[in-house]
Amino acid sequence: MLKIDNLVVAYGGIEALKGISMEVEEGKIITLVGANGAGKSTTLRAIMGLVKPVSGAITYKGSNLLAEKTQNMVRNGIALVPEGRRVFPNLTVLENLKIGAFCRNDEKNIKEDLEWVYHLFPRLKERTWQLAGTLSGGEQQMLAVGRALMSRPKLLMMDEPSLGLAPLVVKEIFNIIKEIHKQGVTILLIEQNANAALHIADIGYVMETGRISLKGTGHELLANQEVKEAYLGKKAK
């Protein structure tokens, strides 16, 4: 579905990605784990067209994604849950969700999807008319996920959805990710919480300072000695 080939991205001469290649297969949950500064967010930003790569290729369903503008990604079925949630604080919960469906005109289906999002996150329904800026961190994360779902994405990319959230909320978010996946949405998940991410992932990539150092199924990586030591803590199973 999405293929990244030898991608190099630099910020003012400093290479954040030093030639990474990876593939997101349709219908799978793919995760990209790694420490701060490994280049995980940069990878997503490059896919969305928010940073221009120095070299390399990104293809999506066979077509060159690098030629597309950011604003057209969502029309192609790619939605992003940005790092740090980035909900629009001056818009209500409902407006935030509607803006997720900004490119769509099929009012009836939008309504259905809204109901689905409210079903996934009943808390959002209770807060429909509240300004998003007044929500708690966990609720904002739910809103950011719901907003992305409102575009009816085929590929949902999430940047650190568990960041700064209480363990119970993290668990809830991960359950929702599985639920969304069951509906046929392909998921590319970026996480520092490697343990939780690898448990739900079909395929995992481990990133280190701009390179992909390991690739494997979620369970393989969970069992891998290096991964255990570097990201899971030695005692983790």
Partner: peptide, 12 residues
């Protein structure tokens, strides 16, 4: 007015 980048991501 709040966030150019995220607005673009939404397809605006």
């Amino acid at each position: 007015s709040k966030d150019h980048e995220t607005a673009g991501v939404m397809g605006i």
